[in-house]
Each structure stands twice: as structure tokens, then as C-alpha cells.
Design a protein around this nucleic acid. Structure first.
Lengths: 356, 356
DNA sequence: TTATATTGCGCAATCGATTTCATTAAATTT
DNA sequence: AAATTTAATGAAATCGATTGCGCAATATAA
């Protein structure tokens, strides 16, 4: 019933050699003869041998595992970054342990510890929104375990980071709205001022300044940025009778909520109010009108993060010089923010088709 | 620089006892005195001790790791199931290794092997669409490692499974469309006939039979069921001039694509064509009109899967009797399939609000 | 042809926690 | 009080692969 694995020793015995030799053959150690190597490989295949990673990890200190910590995998952005990372890990024979912190600092701490104890060779992380204390990551560094942060980063850790230029993304979004003739632009932002939201707010403000538009702090609405929060924020604005002609949200989810409320109130988009979100979640292209948004270059970010990570991994800890890499986001302009309504969709085929 | 971990031995030396005793104290073994136990615990805390999971796993054969294999985490359904599972693992002190097969059978095989070699205590999996051969899972079973499949399962493995009643979900969806007066109902299905799509097709057919509606095989369109596929399927139907008054899709993504094409063609939904999807992806509630769909009870499925898994884990392999658990799905009726158009949204507040 | 390098492989320690067996001390029974 | 159990700890083996060291055999250099 309980089939047990064949071990190095089994191979060694079968060939009348020692486990050391078998190990060396399997890891193509230089000091091994072509002949024995072949015999070992053949026998290993015959016996259906698969190395016990745990034993290997214990002895060598290398597990070929990379721990990834993200707030949630249920965001297109994060799962895309992960896919980008996985493309690399796979090539290099590494495997990924994926963990979600659900933005809970306690859980994040536990996860990071668990990963270290599980012997990962390195950690790639995006910080939770509520993380304010970084000892758990500091420890990772002190252990000499390579660490790279992406997107949700912090300056309180001297560590390599990959992010997009949130400032620029926000600036361009707001600039675009201004170019569409908007003058009173609402900004939906997170009440937690982690790096990304701080930067997006700054981009918003600077765009206003550069275009000589008066900043009105009543137009900046803080929330948790989920869909429901977007709804509430919008309802609030409307109830207060605050005037505006555009909304730039630091999240696609809250702009979605805001749009729902606007549509329900009979306010036309983009004619009356123009909208731009942030994140390029797939659903933004499904809505009517489709929502303009800022793409975060998730796949590129994943690739870059992985590249930087593996560079670190190769170096001895002392040579690991933290570097910041900043990617350019891309403004995706869709129906929710265009002033000249695209009326005709060009040639539209007419089908012979009768509806009941 | 490289801070190293404190080990059992460190604690033992500090207290002038043996590692055996320390180990027993930490694992609250019955045969240990209250006094030493306390001293050990205190010293462990003082030295900031954290057990090396790898060593522990090697010796004890228990890693406290659960491997999860899913096609992708980038589906609300899967990430919700995972959340459900994680709620349990966390409570019980287990951790999760998440892996994505991306529906690639080769990758799936590799992943399962890697998980076993990484020493997971069990595996929870949802099969890739293209998986036709199950040796990798068979091996898991033969090793006495508990295995539970969810949603995308197979009868070719004698293993515990948790799924929803796809047949019922489809039946109810189609019945609902029929009740709305539809007679020519298109069914978008996957060309790969894995369990879930087979069952949904069967539900579709049986509903037609029960309501004495002629089955027309031209109304069943096979594809890969992504958004683009849904578009193409719909374009095809229209080009062929096939008459229909409703679409029931086995995937939310392809119904989304189909809806886009319909709207672009100026065909009104739900007046001319009514739509029902499957999966209750969040975006289905964001669209205009919102899309009716079948909810798969993902969180419940995650909870149940985890419960069943941990029951298995406790039993010795020979007592593990495979059980099938089938959850009832829920039809979520939204705007895309309602015949009486809900015109007024009840009381709508009018705000004092002037738009430019 | 002797001296030196190099190659190939075995020996045994090692990674750190767990666990079986043995041993001593304490508690309970007769 | 002697005999028997039980409780608490120690000693040492163990999980399976890796690796430093050493030795012999072969190859290369002098």
C-alpha cells in the first residue's frame, strides 16, 4: 500500500557504490567519471528515483523554493505579477510558495516566519496595506535571505524594490481629464497612506498645480477603496452637493462603485462626469461605458522582480546592493473619459436576423 | 551579518539538558515535568527560538504543509475556494503551498511531484482542463498522502471529491430562461469535455427535454470559453443567421464576450436576447445590464474541501474511504435575463446638483 | 623514471529535530 | 520494607542527501 520512495542509498546499493558517488552523479559534480555518472542516472531512472527535497534542503541549506507574499491573489494585478515571476522560477528549476496576507499584518508576520522556517531560498513580497512595522522582513534580511519588494513597498527597509511610477500614472490620468476639459476632479484615495496611494495623490495634486487648477480638499475622498466604498464615497459627494466633473480613483474597484451610483442617479458618463481608475482590472473593459484606467505593467513587473531576485540570489549577502526599479505605467483611455462621444463604431455589418 | 537561528541544541545547552527533553517540552509530550517544560518554553522564548521545519519534517515525516493545485488563482472561484481552505489550515497550524498549473498537464505533473518531494502532508487539487492522465495523482495516493479533488474532478481516480451540482445549476439556468419565454436557447460549452462541462451540457439538454423544446445541435457552440471565444462564437452564430432568443453559457467569460458582440450589433439585452452565465465572477454584476449567472458556492466548497481533507489526514490510509460531496449551486438572476424590464428603480433621490 | 597533479570514489560527519530504548528516580502497591 | 509501576530524562540512532577529507589510481610533468 504505502509505496515508499527510493532513496540515494537504494541506488548506491544496487550499483555497489556509495551514496556520495550517487549524489555527485546526480548533481553532475565535476569529480565524477562519465561512466559511473551514466550508470547512476540510468539506475535512478529505472528505480524511479526522485530526490527527497527535504533532506537535501536540510543538508545543503538550499530548498529551491521562493516564497511569495501578496495581500491577495484575487487581483488581476497580483496574479499577473505572480505569473511573470513564475515564468522565471520555472526556467531556473525553482518552485514558488504562494501566500496571502489578506492585508493582515499579523498574518503577514506569521507567513514570513513560516516561509523562513520552511527554508525558502528567498522572499518576494508586496506589503499589506496595514503593515507599519517591518521586523519580520528585517529578520529575513539579517538571515542573509534575499528579499525583493514589489509595488507595495516601504522606504523603511533597505531592500530592492520594483514598482511603477504611481506619481506619473496619476499625473497622466489627471492631465488627461484636464485635457478633456475637466476642472473639478474628484480623487478617491485610500485612507491608509502607503506608498502607492501617497504617490498617486501627489501626482493628482501636481497635475492640478501645473494646470493652474485650484485644489479643493473636499474633492479628495478617503476610503478603503473597495467597490462598496466607492459607492459610499460617491453617494456622499452627491448628498453634500459638491460640484465635480470628473473622478480619478486610485483603484478600479472604487471607480466601479462610483460609476454604478452615478449611472443609477441618471448622471451620464462621460458626458456629465468623466472617470479614470487605476489598475486596469479586466472588468474595466467590460463595463458600459468601459472605464479608462492606468495599467500597472504587471507582467513586466513580475519579470523584472524575478530577474532582480535571482541576481540577488547569486550574490553573497554582502554584495547585495538594494536597488529601486521604477516602471512606467500606461494610461489606457476608454469610453468613461472621452469627451467626443464616439458615436458610430465604423462599419457595422447587418445580419439577416430576426428577433422575436 | 548572517544571523543564524537558535536550535534545539542551543536551548538544551543553556539549560544543561538534552535536546530530547527540549523537543518533548516544545511538543508538549506527556512524559515531561511541568517544571522543565516551563523552563524550556521560557528559554525558547528568550532565545527567540523557532523550530527548523525542514529538520522536523525530515525526521517526523510531517511538514504541516498542504499543497494546493489549481489551474489559475486568477479566477474568483478558485481564489475564493482557496480562502475557504486557508481558513481551516490556519486554525490547525498548517500552511498552504499554492501552485498554478495554468491548465498545462505537463506543468501539473511537475507541480504534483514537486509538492510530494517538498514533503507536503496532503494535496488538494482542481484538475487542469487538458489533464487526461492521472498517474501523478495516483502516485500521491499510493504514497498514502491524502488527496482531495474539488470542482474539476475525475472518476478515473478513486479519491474524495467536492463539487457543485453542475447539472442542476445548468438545468435551473435553462429552466429560468424557458420561464422567461425563451424557446431557442444557445449553449456555449467547452470543447474539452471535462466533468463540469459535460454536466452543464446535460442539464441544458434535460431542461429542454422536460419542457418539450426541440434540441437543435446548431445551438450548441463549443470553444475554449474565454472572452474572445465568446465573441467569436456569437459572431459566428450571427453570421450563420441562426435564430435564437437566449444564451446559456457554461462560463461567465464567454457570455461576457457574447454580450459585447450583441450590444455592438445593437441587439437589446434582455429584450431581444436573454443571457445567463456560469460562475458568478464579480464582473457579472458590474456590467450593463448585469449578467445572470450560477453561483458555485466557492467559499462553502473551500470549507468543505478543507474539512474533508483534514478528516482524511487524521485517518490511516487504509481507512480513507473516498467520498463524493456535491453542493447545490445558486442561480443568481440579474438584468440580462429578466423579461419584465425593471424600469423604475423605486425611489430615486434627486440631488441638487448641476452638471456642466 | 621519478615526482607531482589530477581524477574518481569511499568514509564519515553533518544539517536539526524526533523518537526508541535505556536508565534513574520517584511513587505506589503488597 | 521490598517489589513493582510510573514518571522524567538521557543516550544514541534516525530521516536522506550533501560534502570535506583522504586515499588510491591514473595521468601529466620534469
Amino acid at each position: 500500500m504505502n509505496k515508499k520512495k527510493t532513496t540515494l542509498l537504494d541506488i548506491a546499493r544496487a550499483l555497489n557504490i556509495t551514496p556520495s558517488t550517487v549524489s555527485r552523479a546526480l548533481n553532475n559534480h565535476p569529480r565524477i567519471s562519465e561512466k559511473t555518472s551514466k550508470r547512476v542516472l540510468k539506475m535512478a531512472a529505472d528505480l524511479n528515483f526522485e530526490p527527497n527535497k527535504i533532506a537535501s534542503a536540510l543538508r545543503s541549506g538550499k530548498s529551491k523554493l521562493v516564497g511569495i507574499v501578496v495581500p491577495t491573489v484575487n487581483r488581476n494585478f497580483f496574479s499577473s505579477v505572480i505569473r511573470g515571476i513564475e515564468a522565471h522560477t520555472e526556467k531556473l528549476g525553482y518552485h514558488v510558495i504562494l501566500s496571502q496576507s489578506y492585508d493582515d499584518p499579523v498574518k503577514e508576520k506569521q507567513i514570513v516566519k513560516a516561509l523562513v522556517n520552511a527554508g525558502v531560498d528567498g522572499v518576494i513580497a508586496s506589503l499589506g496595506k496595514n503593515t507599519t512595522e517591518f521586523n519580520h522582513f528585517q529578520e529575513v534580511l539579517e538571515r542573509g535571505i534575499p528579499l525583493v519588494l514589489f509595488d507595495r513597498v516601504t522606504d523603511k527597509l533597505d531592500v530592492s524594490q520594483v514598482m511603477i511610477d504611481d506619481y506619473l500614472g496619476a499625473y497622466q490620468a489627471v492631465e488627461h481629464l484636464i485635457n478633456q476639459g475637466c476642472l473639478r476632479i474628484v480623487h478617491l484615495t485610500n485612507f491608509r497612506k502607503i506608498n502607492i496611494y501617497k504617490e498617486r495623490l501627489r501626482g493628482y495634486q501636481d497635475a492640478l498645480i501645473d494646470y493652474k487648477i485650484q485644489f479643493d480638499k473636499r474633492l479628495v475622498v478617503e476610503s478603503n477603496m473597495q467597490l462598496e466604498d466607492g459607492r459610499k464615497s460617491m453617494e456622499n459627494l452627491l448628498e453634500k452637493g459638491i460640484n465635480f466633473d470628473a473622478v480619478f480613483s486610485a483603484s478600479d474597484y472604487s471607480i466601479m462603485g462610483a460609476m454604478q451610483v452615478l449611472i443609477e442617479m441618471g448622471i451620464n458618463i462621460p458626458e456629465n462626469v468623466k472617470l479614470v481608475g487605476f489598475g486596469n482590472e479586466p472588468f474595466t473593459s467590460f463595463t458600459a461605458p468601459s472605464i479608462s484606467t492606468v495599467d500597472q505593467k504587471s507582467i513586466a513587473m513580475g519579470n523584472l522582480t524575478a530577474e532582480i531576485f535571482f541576481e540577488l540570489l547569486e550574490k553573497p549577502p554582502k554584495d547585495r546592493i538594494p536597488q529601486k526599479t521604477i516602471l512606467k505605467p500606461e494610461l489606457i483611455i476608454r469610453g468613461s473619459s472621452l469627451s467626443e462621444k464616439t458615436s458610430g463604431k465604423g462599419l457595422m455589418k447587418r445580419y439577416l436576423f430576426r428577433f422575436p
